[in-house]
Amino acid sequence: MSELKRKAQVMDAEGVRRALARLAHEIVEKNQGAAEVILVGIRRRGIPLAQRLSKLIGSIEGTEPPVGELDITLYRDDLSTLGPNPIVHRTYIPKPVTDATVVLVDDVIYTGRTTRAAMDALFDLGRPRAVQLCVLIDRGHRELPIRPDFVGKNVPTSKKEVIEVHLEEIDGEDAVYIMEKQE
């Protein structure tokens, strides 16, 4: 694994806060409220993001939509290239996904493969009425026909770069950085 060097900061704590506030409004607007919505965070950083969006939507609509946690390890198409056995965590969704509108929440969308795996995992749990995708950062370079419905910020990157999202709950700060692989 090559070393990563911090190249630029693309969002600070205020930036993350504003982006999430806008995303919450967009989710409510698109779904005409949030009564039928379940926010499902993709492990790992999608989960705190989904929890924050739920609180924000609660402050707009009066009720907080339920938050689920999705572990996609068993559905990945790159398991055999990832190195020895990533840890599998439990998937927990507090209500049936069948007939609900599920908003998948993740920190970054890149190739789209994580989203594909998440959709496969979700459909093994039931048949949602609709699935939408919400990401904090879209960094481009899609390899699959997948497009997010809600985007915090578009950050054009090269394939040599890596986006690092830091969240208070996991990393002790809210920030987004572009990192560069060192040769």
Partner: peptide
């Protein structure tokens, strides 16, 4: 401990309607 920890998400799979993962 790793095997025991991994068995918990596996048990969730066999308790649901579609008892299959593509792994």
């Amino acid at each position: 401990l790793t095997i025991l920890d991994m068995a918990a998400p596996m048990k969730d799979i066999i308790l649901r309607e579609i008892k299959k993962v593509p792994t």
